[in-house]
Design a protein around this nucleic acid. Structure first.
Lengths: 180, 180, 180, 180
DNA sequence: GATGAATGAGCTTTCATTCAT
DNA sequence: GATGAATGAAAGCTCATTCAT
C-alpha cells in the first residue's frame, strides 16, 4: 500500500471516529471525508459502503482499547490498572451508540464484530484481572466476559464530562476490590 | 377540538408508536401517516415537526406506563405488582431506542421529557415500592429513581422474544424481594 | 386524479419526449423536470424510476402513432394515407434511439412494450393496407407486421431534415403501390 | 514507440472491443483497463479521452473488416467470398451499437470516421463485387456504397446467436446472385 | 512510461415540509 | 380541517480524468 493511501486511510478512520461521536453513525459520508481532508471518492475507495467504515472504526477502537491493557499494566499497580481500563472501556461503550444497533442489523459487514469483541477484549480484561488477583487486590474467579457485559450495559449513557465512570460501574468495581 | 380531529390525533400517536417500533424513530413521515390512515398534511397539522411527534409518543408512553401501576396494584399482590410493572417498564425502555438520543439531541421539543419521566414514573414506582414494603415483601428504603435508572440502564438491549425481563434485571428484582 | 397533477404528468411526458430526442434516453432526470417546469420530486412521484418514464413515453408515442392512422385515412385517399403514415412511423422509429436497447434491457418496466407495439401498430397499419388494397392502390396480401419490421429496420438512422422518408423506405413504398 | 507501449496499445484496443461488445460504449474506463491488464493511467496516456478510444476501436475494426476482403477472395470462389464478407460486415455493424450515435455526436474525435468508412470499405466491397461479377456470379453494376448502406441499415438489430446474417440481408444477397 | 490513488462533479433517489385544492 | 401533490435540499454513490509516486 502506498504511503499516501495509508495516511488517507488513517485520517479517514480518525475522522470517522470523530464524526460518529459528534453526529452519530448515520452522519453524511461527505462530512467524514471533509473532516479527513479528503474527497468522498477516497472514502468510498477505502470503504465501499458505510457499514464497512463503521465496522472498521469499531474494530480499530476495540483494538486500541484492548491494547491499552498492557500499557496500563506496565505503568500502574494491577488493581489501579484494572480500574483505569474499565473506565476506558466505559468510554468506548459510551461513544459507540451505534454498536448495539450494528450488531443487530444483520449486515454482513458486522459479522465478525462479536468475535472481535470477545476475542480482543476478553483476553485483555483477563490479563488485568489475573494480575490484580495475583496481587491480592481483587477477588479471584470473576468471569471477564460477564464483567464486560455488565459494565457495557451500565455504560450506554453519555459519559460524565469529567471522564469519571458511571456511579453504578463504580459500585461494581468497589465490589470487585478486596479492601483490607 | 372536533371529534374527528381528536380521533386522528389518537390514530397518529398509535401509528407513530407502531412505526417507531418497527422502523425506528427516523421512519418517513409518510409511513406514519399511512399507518394512521391519514394524509401527511394531517400529521403536520397535529405535530409541526418530527421531534414534536416523537416527544408526544414518548410522553404518551410514559403516561401509560405510569398509569399501569395503579391497575397492577389493584389486581395483584403488591410484590407481584412491582415485578410486573418493572417488566413493563423494561419493555418501554427496550422499545424506545431513540429515547436517549432524543434526550441528548438538544431539540427544544424534548426539553420537558426528563421532568416528565421522573415526574410520572417516580411516583408510580414509589407507590408500588411503598405498598410492597408495607406488605413486607420487599426491603424498604429503596430510592425509586435510582432503581428506575438502574433498570433502565440494564434494559437497553433488545428484549427476549418471550417478554421476560433481562436476566440482570431479574437479579436486581430478586435482591429487592425479602425471601422468607 | 387532481387537475394539476394531470397537467404535470402531461407536461412531463412531453418534456421527456423532447429531452429524449435531444439528449438521448439517458438524459439527467433534472433536465426533464426542468423542461417540464416541475421539480424532480414531481417527476419521481409520477415515474418511480427512469425505466418507467421511458416506457411511458414510448407507449404514449406508440399510441399517438397508431391513432394517426384513422385521422390520415379520414383526410386522404387510402394510398396516400398509407404513405403518410409510414413516413410518420419512420419518424417515430428515428426518434426512439433507445427503443431497441430498451427492449433488450430485460427491465420489467419494458415487459409490455413489445405487445403494445404489435397490438397497436399492427391493427393501425392493417386498416391502412386494407383500405388501400380495397381501393386498388396497393397490392393485397402484405403482412403488416413484416412491413412494420422492415420499415423499422430501415429507419434507424436520423431522418432527413426535410422530413421525407429514407430513400430505401421510399423504394419499399414504391414497390407496394400498384402503378397504372 | 517502445515495444511495451505498442503491446499495451494493442491490448487496450482488443480489450476495448471486447468490453464495448459486452457492456456498450459507455462502459467504465476502469473496466477496459482491467480487461487489458493495465492501469487506467495507461489507457489515458494512449487515448486522452473516451471518444478517442471509441474512434480508434471503430477505425481498427473497419480496417480489419476491409482487410478481410482480400483474404476471403484468396480462399473462396468470388461469389462465396462476397457472401462471407457481407456476413462479416453484418457482424461488424451489429457489434457497433455506438456507431451511429458516435457519428451524430459531433465530437471532433469522430470527424474522420465517415471518410474512413467509405474509404476503406468501399474499395474492399468493390473488389469483391467486381470479382464476382467478372465470374458471372452476381449481377454487375451494383453500387458498393449503396449496398453497404442497405446492409448496414438492415443489420442494426442484434445478430442471431448462430452468426448467420439477418433474413432480410439474406434476401438481398439472394437477389444479387445470378442463379442458373 | 506505468500505475492506481485521489478528486469531485454529477446523477439518481428519498423525504421533510409546504400549500393549493 | 383534511388531503396528497409539489418542492427542492440533501445524501449515497459512480466514474472520467488528473497526477503523485
Amino acid at each position: 500500500m502506498r504511503a499516501d493511501a495509508r495516511q488517507n486511510l488513517d485520517a479517514l478512520l480518525i475522522a470517522a471516529r470523530t464524526v460518529f461521536a459528534r453526529s452519530g453513525v448515520d452522519a453524511p459520508a461527505r462530512e467524514i471525508a471533509a473532516e479527513a481532508g479528503v474527497g468522498v471518492g477516497t472514502l468510498y475507495r477505502h470503504f465501499p459502503n458505510r457499514a464497512e467504515l463503521v465496522a472498521a472504526v469499531f474494530t480499530t477502537e476495540i483494538d486500541a482499547t484492548a491494547a491499552a491493557a498492557a500499557d496500563l499494566l506496565a505503568e500502574h499497580p494491577p488493581g489501579e490498572a484494572l480500574d483505569l481500563w474499565i473506565t476506558r472501556f466505559t468510554r468506548f461503550v459510551a461513544t459507540k451508540q451505534g454498536l448495539s444497533a450494528a450488531l443487530r442489523s444483520g449486515d454482513p459487514a458486522f459479522d465478525s464484530l462479536p468475535a472481535h469483541l470477545t476475542g480482543k477484549l476478553g483476553p485483555a480484561l483477563t490479563s488485568l484481572l489475573d494480575a490484580a488477583a495475583a496481587a491480592g487486590e481483587v477477588r479471584p474467579g470473576v468471569d471477564p466476559l460477564d464483567l464486560l457485559q455488565a459494565v457495557g450495559d451500565l455504560s450506554h449513557r453519555a459519559p460524565s464530562p469529567d471522564g469519571s465512570p458511571n456511579p453504578m460501574v463504580q459500585l461494581l468495581l468497589d465490589g470487585l476490590h478486596i479492601r483490607p
